[in-house]
Design a protein around this nucleic acid. Sequence first.
DNA 1: AGCTAGTTGCAAATGGTTCTCATGTGCATT
DNA 2: AATGCACATGAGAACCATTTGCAACTAGCT
Lengths: 142, 142
Amino acid sequence: MRQAKNRIAELEEILREGGVRVTRQRAAILKILAEAEDHPDASELHRRAKEIDATVSLSTVYRTLSALEQQGVVQRHAFENATARFETADAPHHDHLIDIETGAVIEFRSDKIEQLQAEIAAELGYDLVRHRLELYCRKRKD
Amino acid sequence: MRQAKNRIAELEEILREGGVRVTRQRAAILKILAEAEDHPDASELHRRAKEIDATVSLSTVYRTLSALEQQGVVQRHAFENATARFETADAPHHDHLIDIETGAVIEFRSDKIEQLQAEIAAELGYDLVRHRLELYCRKRKD
DNA sequence: AGCTAGTTGCAAATGGTTCTCATGTGCATT
DNA sequence: AATGCACATGAGAACCATTTGCAACTAGCT
């Protein structure tokens, strides 16, 4: 919680420096995002944010998420057949494994894969700008 | 062309066996798909299909694509910030490199990456069902 | 050739996301 | 602490790719 508090203050500072005002609504959304352990979508964030500040509208959730994304503070993911889901961009780069039964998202990272991707792009005459790697899986039954 | 002709007849046979009627409209869409060298979206397919059969409606394009996808004959791709794009599923599995400037799609395949993905899923206690790997790139300037 | 369940075109519905607009409010400046 | 105004907000309309309802059509088995 101490940690989270600092993190939130830090995020608010980033916004102010970027010329983005920290309103009551944005503070609520930031808090929810900083505390989230999962990858909620806009309406779930809206549901949670309303518990802090009942006036937050869904429009504002979307607008704030876009602003945060533009500031590089939030990342948006469009997993298959689903609404966009969000996470704070404080963790180092990682890819996602999605449990196709529960929708749960697990983060992972493979330097080998990262490197192979860059090599493939280079071989084809391209510079890799960004990538998307998602593993759609089912929990192993023993 | 000879080749394509056979391929189309083959596809039509698959459909009939799957209990899907081969209508005038579907034949047109199949032909377009079989001949496509790129990864067109629904409205582009519609545009092309109308040249063969002017009566083809966009609804039918969508409905046919869904049917074909369900028969495993077509694959749908939802690249970033874009409408769904389609390709026939006759080529062996591959991933995609997308030119972020032109939208061009290049197919590639890396057995190493395929294997690493399965290993990662296994390590996390999952069975890999399918995956999505897209490289968003810019043409290298020399 | 006839039957009938699957298909079609059209238009309207859908649903996540974005936009419009009149009103409200951070916050730099005083 | 009060002020001003550019930026934000809530509500609902707009957007737009895709899907669906419906009445008319038709592929293809018999």
